[in-house]
Amino acid sequence: MDNASVVTMFTLSGLNDISNYRLTVFSLTLLCYSMIWLVNLTIILTILFDKNLHEPMYIFLCNLCINALYGTSGFYPKFLIDLLSATHVISHAGCFLQAFVLHSSACADLSILVLMSYDRYVAICRPLVYRLVMTKQRISVLMLITWLIPLSLLFSSTMSTLTLKLCGSHIPKIYCVNFFINNLACSKSITNKIIPAFNYSFYFCHFLFVICSYMKLIRMCRASKENRRKFSQTCLPHLLCLMMFIICALFDLMYMRFGSKNLSQHLENFMAVEYVLIPPLFNPVIYGLNLTKIRIRIQSVLCGKHAFFRKIS
């Protein structure tokens, strides 16, 4: 505890080796962030303004896209500023806020994907009671819980980390995460071990629920051609999004805890960025291409704009 000091700023590593092509990385990052906003906002506005899409599956998809914008806002603006600055530092409050946004967004992502799997299970395995089960009131309650639980769990985790006495200020990553902040603590507390363990167990149960629901879905769809068609149209996009999330999240978690320090800095940066790049960018694209109603609605809007421009030209 003698080495403890009041930490007002954290330093982030990972950008020192890209000084020769900083502007190139900045341009590509800005392009990716713009594309993330474009594809997610397109899905959100399409669902909001088309009353035919005010159904459970599309409401959950809309929330998934909103969460993508929420999560990426915790990384890209700061990362773009770091690419243009000589020093890569972040304030004490800013670091904890960034960690909270990124972690809570990841947890909310999994919660929404679990809710979508439950919706597909009821729609395919219990179609006669689907309207009775997935009412507007129940959907509202489920969405509220889906947002409140991740925010509450990560708020308690962040607050417990905030109370730690820190003996360092260097974070070996291009953004703040609770794991590395905890590693800077002068001494470990039991609370900072119990809360993360509970959070991991809680969301591992989410994962088990999805596995069980899909096992039942697959058994149900094998016996019916109509169910197989529903599965390919609505469940496959969800399954692809879920697999992308799990692969990216596990890649990052496993590397943080067990990764080799001999990897190049560029590879480390890629593994750090993949979670805030791949799911937010490809989830709306996968759903937009596979869900017929959304695809037709977007095409009609685009065709209407083309017809309007042809008239005025």
Rank of each mutant, 00 (worst) to 15 (best):
T46F: 00
N63G: 09
T29R: 04
S34D: 00
N67A: 05
D50Y: 06
G71H: 05
E55Q: 14
F26L: 15
L45F: 04
Y33P: 02
P56M: 00
C32G: 07
E55W: 01
F75H: 11
S27L: 15
I47N: 04
I44V: 11
L41G: 10
M35T: 07
Y70N: 06
W37V: 14
W37L: 15
I59P: 00
S27M: 13
C32R: 04
Y58N: 10
L64I: 13
F60L: 15
L23F: 12
L41T: 15
T46V: 09
S19G: 01
I47P: 01
N20G: 03
S73Y: 03
I59L: 13
N63A: 11
H54D: 08
W37Q: 10
F75M: 12
P77G: 10
N52E: 11
G74N: 02
P56R: 00
Y70A: 06
F75C: 08
N20C: 00
V39Y: 09
G71Q: 09
L48R: 12
F49C: 13
I59V: 14
L61M: 13
L41N: 06
T24L: 01
L38D: 00
S27I: 15
K78H: 13
Y76A: 14
L48D: 05
F49I: 12
P77A: 10
N52I: 05
S34F: 03
S27G: 05
S19H: 04
T72D: 06
N67Q: 14
D50Q: 10
I36W: 11
L45Y: 02
I47A: 04
S34N: 03
C32Q: 07
S34E: 03
N20S: 02
C62L: 15
Y76L: 11
F49L: 14
L41C: 09
